[in-house]
């Protein structure tokens, strides 16, 4: 059986609507109008042990809500979920000891104390034996380069340093399943790469199952072979990332630097001309014919330089969402 099993999972919220202004406030004080928001709407998927899966979707798509249901923080309104054979919302101790939820926008570290103090509290809470604790801390230190950070008050750490400590605090009990909700939010590129490498290394060493949400497409591209795309609570893609790219964007971007002038009409037979200013030509060439086309072009024109690129993932995902909304 798969490690994470989600079947027709729904989570609906009742929110009350308020019109603007004092009049609206008064009206909503006496007679509230409620509206049902389907944050997650009949979503199903299965994840095997050791998989790294990226959750993609715009803000408010239902990614965080899904992770919260899987963590047992929210009761599902319909359908069911099971993680490692446990029903999350029962919040059994045996379950709570085996996973972790990292929320990039919320912190559990004690603000006024060095991070190591939060670690010690977590050690007591998770009842981690001294030997295991020391070994895990040593490994985390090695992977995240925590060193001197642990002894500095959390309020004096930079955002990136704090995130490293947050991650470590959430990993002390060696979780088998990791729910990472925007773990790299607000971090600079170097730190993002750092965190990404850590996630990949942890997955490799411990065979942990990971669900990752991120606004930074690079995180998902670098880590996840498989992605689940949700929008407005509905799942509409679950599968291999590369296949999705090939389906939505079945072309490569071919850039030519010419040494002689050419006009765009010269290139229309090879593919869609995106731009042509005489010396620089950008073409969208069907994927399977990309190399042949390039070879042919090299014989036809005086080419200084030629590059191939995959279309930017952001564009692809945007196309997916736009297609979905129509």
């Amino acid at each position: 059986m798969s490690q994470i099993h989600v079947e027709r999972l729904s989570k609906h919220y009742q929110v009350h609507e308020k019109e603007a202004g004092l009049g609206g406030s008064l009206r909503s004080f006496f007679a509230r109008k409620y509206r049902t928001v389907k944050a997650v709407d009949e979503v199903s998927f299965d994840i095997q042990a050791g998989e790294m899966v990226g959750f993609l979707g715009p803000n408010g798509a239902g990614k965080t809500t899904t992770l919260k249901v899987l963590s047992g923080l929210l009761y599902p309104s319909g359908g069911n979920a099971s993680v490692m054979g446990h029903v999350p919302h029962k919040r059994e101790t045996a379950y709570l000891k085996q996973f972790t939820l990292v929320m990039g926008q919320k912190q559990q570290l004690m603000w006024d104390l060095p991070a190591i103090e939060t670690f010690l509290v977590n050690q007591a809470i998770y009842e981690i034996p001294k030997g295991d604790y020391d070994a895990t801390l040593k490994e985390l230190d090695q992977l995240l380069d925590l060193g001197p950070l642990l002894k500095k008050q959390v309020r004096k750490l930079s955002l990136g340093e704090r995130m490293k400590c947050e991650l470590a605090a959430a990993m002390l009990h060696r979780p088998k399943v990791l729910f990472l909700d925007e773990p790299t939010i607000g971090l600079d590129v170097t730190m993002q790469v750092r965190i990404r490498d850590f996630i990949a290394a942890y997955n490799q060493r411990h065979g942990a199952t990971i669900i990752l949400t991120s606004h930074y497409m690079a995180d998902v591209t670098a880590l996840c072979e498989r992605i689940i795309v949700i929008d407005k609570g509905k799942l509409f893609y679950d599968g291999n990332f590369r296949e999705l790219i090939e389906k939505i964007a079945p072309y490569k971007i071919l850039k030519l630097q010419l040494s002689t002038h050419a006009i765009s009409e010269h290139f229309t037979e090879y593919g869609k001309v995106e731009s042509c200013d005489g010396v620089t030509v950008v073409l969208h060439v069907p994927r399977e014919r990309a190399t042949d086309t390039a070879a042919h072009l090299l014989t036809q024109f005086k080419v200084n330089d030629v590059t191939f690129e995959d279309p930017p993932v952001e564009d692809i995902i945007r196309q997916v969402f736009e297609g979905n909304r129509k």
Binding site: S71, L73, R91, K106, I125, Y126
Partner: peptide
């Protein structure tokens, strides 16, 4: 107010105690 109660509910300890 801030939603950090989530961290408490994730811990394998009585939430009331925590």
């Amino acid at each position: 107010r801030l939603g950090t109660l989530d961290f408490v509910l994730l811990k394998p300890v009585s939430s009331q105690f925590m």
